[in-house]
Design a protein around this nucleic acid. Structure first.
Lengths: 343, 343
DNA sequence: CTGTTAGCGCGTTCAT
DNA sequence: ATGAACGCGCTAACAG
């Protein structure tokens, strides 16, 4: 399909017998212009359906007014909330966003960085893939002074601003809640150990245990790669144990929901036999039976904050010193952790 | 933050004492070039961290290699699946995507179209907002020969390609299933009547009824504006009826899930007292209790198809004649519509 | 083999 | 009050 020709200032100028710069001035309402010519030009532009060419503008001023966004996946509710916050904020401040998904692949993430930089985005908002364990691509951005910040899936290796939630505290909250309800043997179902959130949430888990006098060596950590098969395996294995846990804190809601299904299949009552809690507060968690206790992460607000901070840096409203924003998480106590009278 | 300076061909040229065009030729591996100069240039480019400027390229060739995408909202699972399909496809074919959300607002949608056009996107993929009832903004795109196609939320007023699912057939499938299970008095909980999908799904509903000998005048259609309050109201009103329905087909899953909650609160057993089905197959629907019968829409595939078709048009691999693609939906029968032995 | 010229659409000089 | 010239980064056409 041949793209329909776009009217340019040049054509308007020609039609009216004026110069291009006059048209330019008229269109941006410059004061030093005869009112007549101005109206003539503006009207002609309207009648010719003239549309400003942002690309040319970008080239001229070396600023594209576009932010690049890289997320591991677009379909997770949490990331799409982030993006929604970023998009709304960027839009309000006159920016567009270009979106890539790494699909949790390191190579893809590097490629995404390249194409966004090539596209001359003014800054990037990045949430790292699960595979990302080395950071040369980010270091390069840093060295080349291309503004970017990280959100949610961050690394401390690069000194740029970050926006995260208080993972450790959130985990602490939920485990504390379990202990307070009277559960004693709390398991932590963790994702891969090298994941930032796996570590952080474990910290909170251990801290809550400690507060209730349970030493780390009595902690019960189960590791899964988050595949369905392995989730199932660790759950069933756990059920076989002699001294099995009476409560499970699963690192993320989708894991918790899978565990819930498996427990129910096996006739385990929740919370009577085993209590269960997650993290993220996905929409799903409110509607499962029993409703799932979890920790609410403000995804949309994270996106807003991240975008606003990056734009503030770009507009030099704040200094470039890296800042770390930690958003509060809140406990959402539901039925899956309700202590029943007896037991 | 001042953006770090990007190295240009000009600088490489200067440093090496050659002309810019020579650099250009070397970098795109032109054959008519002395091997030596080529290597010298390529190496210098690498050492200087040269990065190609896509923006300049775009201006030159009047093609940005960017697709614009407008969706009503980013956080719905269905739309984020669409976007995921679009993004993956575009990326594979060397395009980036710029995303806007209309937030279901007509004004916002018009504004989105403007900014994307201004940004010189090569084409647009649009899913209409709920509010959109007039189509001048699309007509203008059409008149100006800016390639675009519509997906999911489409209108037949504009002769461009469209990608939809077979709404009527999907509704037919699920209502047919209900009737086959032995339910007799099937209600249709519909969104606003002027919505395309409200109409289409009603068609399928009526067709299934007809097939089982139920005339249209005995149909039971309840209209809601999809707010929580109104959903609640129509559900409670329905429960008061003398001759109340024994099954409900809700236009979309989120509505179905809300209705499920309300029914359960009121002691109505599902499916024993009233069966319930939805449409979309959101992740949530699989995990509610009872699991929700619904119709599966291939969101990711829709995105892929839409993007591929638009790019095919842009690359002139297919003609510009508008085509309508209708993707198949499939019934996902679950427990919420299981006919119990007795009753 | 390589350099010069010109132009993509725009806006900012600097003239007039 | 308006026009001409220049440059943003890049490449195709034309010269040599």
């Amino acid at each position: 399909m041949k793209k329909g020709h776009q009217v340019t200032m040049k054509e308007i100028a020609k039609k009216l017998g004026v110069s291009v710069s006059t048209v330019s001035r008229a269109l941006k309402d410059s004061p030093e212009l005869h009112a007549d010519t101005k109206t003539r030009i503006v009207e002609m532009a309207k009648s010719m359906n003239y549309q400003y060419n942002l690309l040319a503008q970008s080239l001229r001023i070396s600023r594209s007014k576009v932010l690049g966004v890289i997320v591991p996946e677009l379909t997770s509710h949490f990331f799409s909330s982030n993006i929604s916050g970023i998009q709304d904020t960027a839009y309000k401040r006159g920016y567009n966003i270009m979106i890539c998904q790494s699909n949790e692949s390191f190579e893809q993430e590097k490629a995404n960085v390249r194409t966004l930089v090539s596209s001359q985005v003014d800054g990037l908002l990045i949430s790292l893939s699960r595979e990302t364990k080395s950071y040369e691509h980010l270091q390069e951005l840093y060295d080349r002074e291309i503004p970017f910040i990280m959100f949610d899936r961050v690394t401390e290796e690069i000194p740029v601003s970050k926006v995260t939630v208080d993972d450790a505290h959130g985990a602490y909250l939920v485990v504390h809640h379990l202990l307070e309800q009277g559960f004693k043997k709390i398991a932590y179902f963790s994702g891969p150990e090298d994941l930032y959130i796996s570590k952080k949430r474990k910290e909170g888990y251990l801290e809550a245990l400690k507060e209730f006098g349970i030493p780390e060596k009595e902690s019960r950590v189960y590791i899964t790669d988050l595949t369905f098969e392995m989730n199932r395996k660790i759950t069933l294995d756990m059920l076989q144990e002699q001294d099995r846990p009476d409560a499970i804190f699963a690192m993320i809601d989708p894991l918790a929901v899978e565990v819930m299904m498996i427990l129910k299949e096996n006739g385990v009552r929740i919370p009577e036999d085993i209590a269960l809690a997650g993290f993220t507060n996905n929409p799903t968690s409110a509607v499962v039976e029993p409703s799932l206790t979890t920790v609410s992460q403000p995804g949309y607000e994270m996106g807003q904050l991240a975008a606003n901070h990056l734009l503030d840096q770009l507009d030099e409203l704040v200094s470039d010193d890296p800042q770390t924003f930690v958003l509060l998480t809140t406990l959402v106590a539901r039925n899956s952790t309700k202590k029943t009278p007896k037991s």
